[in-house]
Amino acid sequence: MNSSVIVFPGSNCDRDVATALTNLQFKNKMVWHKDSELPKSDLIVIPGGFSYGDYLRSGAIAAKSNILKEVIKAAKSGCLVLGICNGFQILIETGLLQGALLRNKNLKFVSKDINLKIINNENKFCKNYKKNSIINLNIAHNEGNYFTQKDHLKELEDNNLIPFKYCDIEGSINESSNPNGSLNNIAGILNNNKNILGMMPHPERMVNSLISNSNGIELFTSILNK
């Protein structure tokens, strides 16, 4: 399976995700934001980091870059697109995913390992996870407080477009297990066609139990066997 990782000035999780993909037998290529052609890809990853120094709004400038025009075209024709952290913010700014990522409610940059409940696994990114299982991933962001309008929230809930919610170790989804103030503890969302996933947590940081844990692996293996 061919994957492409888009690299912007300020990306800093690009090589982590490339390593995760390569170790899992993806044929990966790094693609510079100024490029105007995408290599043949089954999966496009927009990695975490601080593209363009988060100027104006996180992801706003990257969303207007050359290569994003190609990413938008590919996404609209059904290619799988995964945006992690700043990648999620960029997908929101392109309009490929709806809603907004606001400043964390407590105004702090939050960097810690959190628990997530798999709310929906009937999609190409999560099918190797068991529904309602709890996984532990890392988050590191300042603007991860997901917000959307009521009718869109209903659409997300009704169409199973929320794969992950923040929870505690027992799986309770409540205010105390919400690290950033995100609406209904939402940690990631899919588009209506379920080929675009944006998520704040970092699965690429959890692919090796020697340095963290391996809870992120299933996300990539789900894609491999799509």
């Binding site: 907004a100 606001l102 400043r103 964390n104 409610k105 407590n106 105004l107 407080n145 917000f147 103030g181």
Partner: peptide
């Protein structure tokens, strides 16, 4: 309707 945490702190 959007929470403005920075404004609130100021």
């Amino acid at each position: 309707d959007v929470l403005d945490p920075q404004g609130k702190v100021v």
